[in-house]
């Protein structure tokens, strides 16, 4: 464990907690894409298949349980909660996210480290995570309303993978085993996807104006 990975995990944890707190306290999911949340739940499900079979550390297990639990409860809140679900704007959340999954699955079948079910599922989760934010970014462009918490959520989510890239660089130079190039490529693509959001987020923060995404 190094400081970059810890910072990445804490930022990722903060992002899901910000979202969960927002939905739980104000009982609204306005501006939140259910499709992105469903994709994240699938990412954690397919990545943590070895949760009970492959013990790495207490920290690792607890964090996996938190990410699984939080992503599924966010999906439950938006789909099932009698108050929250009324604020879900499904006409704006139109990205056909299941279309996104097939290319990731096919790519994972052809490009992976080892052709075993667990490994293909893990690689699938890496590819899927890289593009899972797309429905949310599309929805933001459409609704143009970015309340502070949603803006912070997306910022933290983008920052976590940026910290992971620093972690991979650090591990490359300091450890004997390595992080697979698939993870590198997908992680860089994922962070780049947040690129324009980061740009507008910093602009709004610097000029102290409300966050606006161009149409």
């Amino acid at each position: 464990m190094n400081i970059f990975r810890l910072a990445g995990d804490m930022t990722h944890l903060a992002s899901v907690l910000v979202l969960l707190l927002k939905i739980h306290t104000i009982k609204s999911c306005a501006g939140i894409s259910l499709k992105t949340q469903e994709l994240f739940a699938i990412v954690f499900l397919t990545r943590y298949l070895d949760l009970f079979t492959n013990f790495i550390s207490i920290y690792n297990t607890i964090m996996k349980l938190i990410f699984l639990g939080s992503s599924f409860s966010i999906v439950w809140y938006i789909r099932r909660h009698r108050v929250v679900r009324r604020s879900y704007d499904k006409d704006q959340d139109t990205f056909r996210h299941f279309f996104l999954m097939w290319p990731c699955l096919i790519l994972a079948i052809f490009i992976n480290e080892k052709f075993t079910l667990k490994e293909v599922m893990w690689t699938f989760s890496i590819y899927l995570e890289a593009i899972a934010i797309l429905p949310q970014l599309v929805m933001l462009q459409r609704t143009r309303n970015i309340d502070n918490l949603t803006g912070q959520y997306i910022f933290l989510l983008g920052a976590y993978r940026a910290f992971y890239i620093l972690n991979w660089i650090y591990r490359y130079f300091t450890e004997e085993h390595y992080v697979h190039w698939i993870t590198w490529v997908a992680g860089v693509i994922q962070t780049l996807l947040y690129g324009d959001f980061f740009y507008y987020y910093f602009q709004s923060w610097k000029n102290n104006v409300k966050l606006e995404l161009p149409a």
Binding site: R5, D9, H12, N54, I56, S57, N60, M63, K64, F67, E113, Y164, N167, R171, E175, E176, H177, Y178, V179, H180
Partner: peptide
Amino acid sequence: ARDKVAKDEL
């Protein structure tokens, strides 16, 4: 030699 892939990350 870089033998093992790191699989201890979240």
